[in-house]
Amino acid sequence: MTLDTYDATGSARRRADEHWSRRRDLERQLHDGPALRIAALTLRLGLLAQKARHDVGGLPHDIEELQYQLHLIQQELRAVADRIYPPLLHEAGLGPALRELASSASVRVDAGGGRFDPAVEGVVYFVIVGVLAALPPATRTVDVVIRRDADGLALDLGDVDTGQIGAVRDRVRWVDGVAEVGDGLIGTIRVRIPCE
């Protein structure tokens, strides 16, 4: 590669791709390593409880308590994994991953755009999480519409705090995306990200 053919935009995009692939790998590592070990450990503890079932000193109860603690650790690992790269985002794409959010937040998701590459899906997912987090709890239902058009990904976030536009622009710029917003404190943020 010579200096005058160096494509700065392409390079930034490659770095974004690497970053998001690495996050995806980290999530997988959590699943295949500690999470699996902890799940196996709960089974071994169950075996121990079975051996100690005639114990009069309360050993089976203590073991059950330890298993519950391990369950709490697993729940915490799941929460961490979701902040790194939600496993469902990787397995099934934006629609299913966002609908999982919808069961804890007031969101209507319409995502008929199919799959995009990991960087685009990662950026869009966390843009939406960020915008939702900026809303006061249980105020209104946010409408999320994701489509694939001729240029790439089109995201409309309806009924959100338009003051979030700066944060949204910062995030989507990473994958060469742009964001615009209408007038008013509450309105629609539109994001467009070019895709192959």
């Binding site: 697993q74 496993p87 469902l88 299913p96 609908r99 999982e100 069961s103």
Partner: peptide
Amino acid sequence: HYAETHYLIRVLNIGTQAIGYRLKEKVG
């Protein structure tokens, strides 16, 4: 390892009888 509504719905699409979905660390 995953407790996802998405998977639960897919499980129930396979069948609604003689079927179950539980977390690995909860059957110990």
